[in-house]
Amino acid sequence: MTKVLVLAEAKNGKLRSVSFEVLTVASRLAADGEISACVFGSDAERHSKELSKYGAQTIYIAENEELDDYTPDGYKQALLEVIEEMNPDVILTGHTSIGKDILPRIAARLDKALFSDCINIETDDGIIFTRPIYSGKAYQKKKVHDDVVIATIRPNNMEAVENPVTAEIIKLPVTITDLRAIVKEVVSKSNGKVDLAEAKVVVSGGRGVKSAKGFEPLQELAGLLGGAVGASRGACDANYCDYSLQIGQTGKVVTPDLYIACGISGAVQHLAGMSSSKVIVAINKDPEANIFQVCDYGIVGDLFEVVPLLIEEFKSALEEDAVTN
């Protein structure tokens, strides 16, 4: 009978939705077996109800204020106690900041493999995990040969399905000793300038932007979407912006979720720097421009008309969000 353990994570007093997604994966792996969850911190118990709603039959709680902030040493000690207590066959958590920090240490301690950032699981013939490699340019299916299976699951990727059960709650008296690294403070990232290479949204301008001033609407759009501004070499060469913004073969390579190319023709050297973006939007007044060959969405038109409209429409879409949330 398979015993699955899920390390659940709370943030700002609430369980993270990835924990429910991982519990759903757990129920597929457990089949008729047992699903347990563990959750740490001084007010960990309050999460037990929600965990049982997604199928956790046993919930291990380590109520210890040393576990209020994540530390590798603290979590390692607590998690090893849970593992000792229940002897799981499978250990899962989200591929999150915490998950990818702690499970490698646990896997090393137990001398097992760890399957990171998994996006799918098959159980027909042994356990096979699917995981993206090369930034999603390829997918790999890996079969497990270890006796204990350890994996982190990519968030926002698999659906969380409710599966209410009544849970047994087990409080483990863990003593945390010798924290070798401690968190002094957590600061939410200041809304300073977003780094181009890291930005989730990049709004780029080319020679079609026509002047340094022409970049202003692009900056506004980027600011609105929490992104950064980039440029083609055409724009840099024409002195509309700094070379540090250049994207392409002789500039930076970016892979944002959204790339908006404004007044860029789409030369191969430019494409070399942005074609792996998740969604590419092109705005160009020339319907024949090469950029339309690589974009996901294209608008044929004058960027000085289109970009202000985009700003307006995004504003109202984002405001609606703020209201409904």
Partner: peptide
């Protein structure tokens, strides 16, 4: 041997 790659493909 703790794991083996059984498939590799492009999206």
């Amino acid at each position: 041997v703790r794991s083996t790659v059984v498939d590799l493909y492009q999206p």
